[in-house]
Amino acid sequence: MRVISENEELLKRWLRFFIGLLILTGIFAFFSSGYSPPGVFGEVLRHNRACSIDASPLFYSEVENMAELEKGVRELRIKKREQIEKLNFKKAGVQNFEPLP
């Protein structure tokens, strides 16, 4: 009698496992299908797909193009500094502007 109930318990556990596995597979199938919510809700997802942006990195070093992004910020800062210097030179009446090193 006891053996039967142990077997039943084991069967129940495995049944629960397979149901869980089915649910997990369903979640995986949904997210991996390429579906994106309609309208504005799916805008970011469609953008990620169009530009191949990996949104999963947890830490900055996991972002594949982090070095490019950092370089981009440096360039933006230099450009902005040059713009400001140019403006200041213009205000001071200097004609031949050479950006500071």
């Binding site: 970011v44 953008h47 990620n48 999963s56 947890l58 830490f59 900055y60 996991e62 972002v63 981009g72």
Partner: peptide, 14 residues
Amino acid sequence: STGAVVAAGSMLGP
């Protein structure tokens, strides 16, 4: 998370 920041930032431009 950084990945989500990059994705969201990209929506506003390079």
